[in-house]
Amino acid sequence: MKDLLNSEMMPAPTPDLQGEPRRRRPAAWPGWRVARRFPLLNIGMVLAALVILASLLAPWITPYPADAGAVIHPDLVLEAPSFAHWFGTDAVGRDIFTRVLFGGRVSIAIVVGVLLISAVIGLSIGLAAGFFGGWLDAVLMRVTDVFLAFPALLLAVALAAMLSASAVNAALAIAFTWWPWYARLARGQAASIRRQGYADAAIVLGAGRARLLIRHLLPNASTAVFVQMSLDAAGIILTAATLSYLGLGAQDPIPEWGLMVAQGQPLATTAWWVITFPGLAILVTAVAFNFIGDGLQNVFDPKRGRS
């Protein structure tokens, strides 16, 4: 992937055969050149934008919005893809195209929820540990290590199994296993920023602890956290799908992709479309966010992108 990025790097403007300097097309928006230099980021952003847009507009652009809920069409059971039903229908006759688009809303809500909860918890704990150091650091990081010692998916499954099965509880269970990564990341950032000249400068200029934390540590640690969030989005979608696939997450009639895959599994040989389209939705969305995460990492870390 790195080679691909390198080969796409913009060459310096060179005079062409007529000896007239080649003009760079004026950028429509400042991020345009960044986007051109990192094509995967570009593809990821377009894909993610399509997924998000389609999910948000689902009630208006799907042919049978009612099929996202608890309806039954006994006359339309397991219809193959056609003009009327692009992705076919499921075992109770609901339009799968409609349900896949609505499913995006569930996944996005879970991703946003999990990221917010784990970033807030992780940043607070990590910044405090890295900034104050000493015994507080030791205690907070040992607690974090305990959480990290369990395989994340197993912990999430165990927790989700303890709570009643629902999309919200699945999100809580995932967040519970996800925050320690943010805590570790934020702690490392805080500890390294604390040693920078500008942290000392702020102290000499009279900044108290609160100011140092909020005005200097938080903004400087947030870049790495932000990149990590975009990298994690794909993993959260997959974990949420896994939980619902195992029956520990969203329940029918909620159109959750993992749940739809689980429902389609016994029909895989007779009605391939039931399992295929929600599966593709998971794949496309996960890949899109992965591209964005990787791309952002390269944008924010020029050494990585150019080496």
């Binding site: 920078q196 000249g197 500008y198 000392d200 400068a201 702020a202 005005r215 200097h216 400087n220």
Partner: peptide
């Protein structure tokens, strides 16, 4: 370089 906060 290091004495100025890169985000300020």
């Amino acid at each position: 370089d290091g004495a100025l906060d890169p985000r300020m």
